[in-house]
């Protein structure tokens, strides 16, 4: 549905988007991920025909964004970074204006306005001035505006920015529910959002494509192995963490044991193992040696870590330091 090849955008001094290529297939929700200034907005503006690319090309729904921009514009719904609202208009009036701008016939218009108002939960502000809406409602009206003409492709630039947690969840659900009929590309720098809503991720940093893969593949890719958090307690009296460590290391399949935190009568280890069936053996080893197994859980590699690894930010050290503090 969206094909991007070698897309580049140079501003006067620096290159905001540098030869990126990716594809988005029909019906997918794809997360477009990157830190501030990565070039997400710039890329989306090129896809929506707002900015012409410096070089390379992109097609949306089979039409070139430069040569056939009119056809592209008919088929996309776009929510820019700041929702494009006219403060002196009322919600319903505004949606009617956008609808007719997108070419909806008069007969259809009223029906569509009612439909998107219901879909985006803005029925109660239908007659309010847009300038007086709260940030969350502005965002929702922006979303309603993007889907008013039932476009094939939705391009959403940080659709959940500035919303409260409840609204974030509602918006994510809304976006997910739209996925069936629309192809969606949404940008964000909030990682859980991608994990929850998207099937596919495209990560860019400083204008360059860093990774493009499905969410689950990316999670696996970061660490080939599974990592477990094991907390062992002493049943009576003291226990020697080093002894525990060496006995854990003896469990078949375990590749590395790392003592993360040592307290009076319990110790916390991070155990790395080949993927699979080591948990039972680990538990048995602990219990048979006469200790208590307080906790045993996989530490899912979060997208956060992958993201930080891929974008080359100082990642691992502070993240690991943070964990024990939380465990106490």
């Amino acid at each position: 549905m969206i094909t991007v090849t070698d897309l580049t955008k140079r501003y006067a001094r620096h290159t905001a988007v540098d030869h990126i290529s990716f594809e988005v297939h029909k019906g997918q929700i794809v997360g477009f991920l990157g830190p501030n200034g990565a070039g997400k907005t710039t890329t989306m503006r090129m896809l929506t025909c707002f900015l012409p690319p410096t070089s390379g090309n992109a097609t949306v729904a089979g039409f070139d964004v430069l040569e056939q921009s009119f056809e592209v514009k008919k088929r996309i719904g776009y929510l820019p970074e700041t929702p494009p609202l006219y403060p002196e208009m009322r919600t319903a009036e505004y949606l009617q204006f956008v609808g007719s701008l997108k070419g909806l016939a008069k007969a259809e218009l009223a029906k569509r306005v009612d439909y998107v108002c219901e879909r985006c939960a803005i029925l109660d502000v239908k007659d309010k001035l847009l300038g007086k809406l709260s940030k969350g409602y502005r965002q929702r009206v922006g979303l309603a505006q993007a889907i008013i003409h039932n476009p094939d492709v939705l391009i959403l630039d940080e659709p959940t920015s500035g919303l409260d947690p409840k609204q974030i969840n509602e918006t994510r659900e809304l976006i997910k529910s739209l996925a069936g009929d629309h192809t969606i590309l949404l940008s964000t720098h909030i990682l859980p959002e991608v994990e929850q809503t998207c099937e596919q991720v495209i990560i860019i940093n400083k204008g360059k494509l860093v990774a493009t893969d499905s969410v689950s593949n990316l999670q696996n890719r970061a660490r080939g192995a599974e990592s477990l958090l094991v907390e062992v307690g002493a049943r009576n009296g003291l226990m020697d963490p080093l002894k525990v460590q060496s006995s854990l290391e003896l469990v078949p399949g375990v590749s590395r044991v790392h003592l993360k935190n040592k307290l009076d009568n319990r110790s916390i280890f991070e155990v790395e193992s080949r993927k699979g069936l080591v948990r039972g053996d680990l538990a048995r080893a602990v219990v048979e040696a006469g200790w208590d197994l307080n906790e045993l859980r996989p530490t899912a590699v979060s997208l956060e870590e992958i993201f930080l690894q891929l974008t080359g930010e100082p990642a691992a050290a502070p993240a690991e330091e943070a964990v024990p503090a939380g465990v106490k």
Partner: peptide, 14 residues
């Protein structure tokens, strides 16, 4: 200033 130009420029109007 308000960014609404982005709406006009990405709509199918010349």
């Amino acid at each position: 200033r308000t960014g609404t130009i982005e709406l006009l420029a990405t709509s199918p109007v010349s």
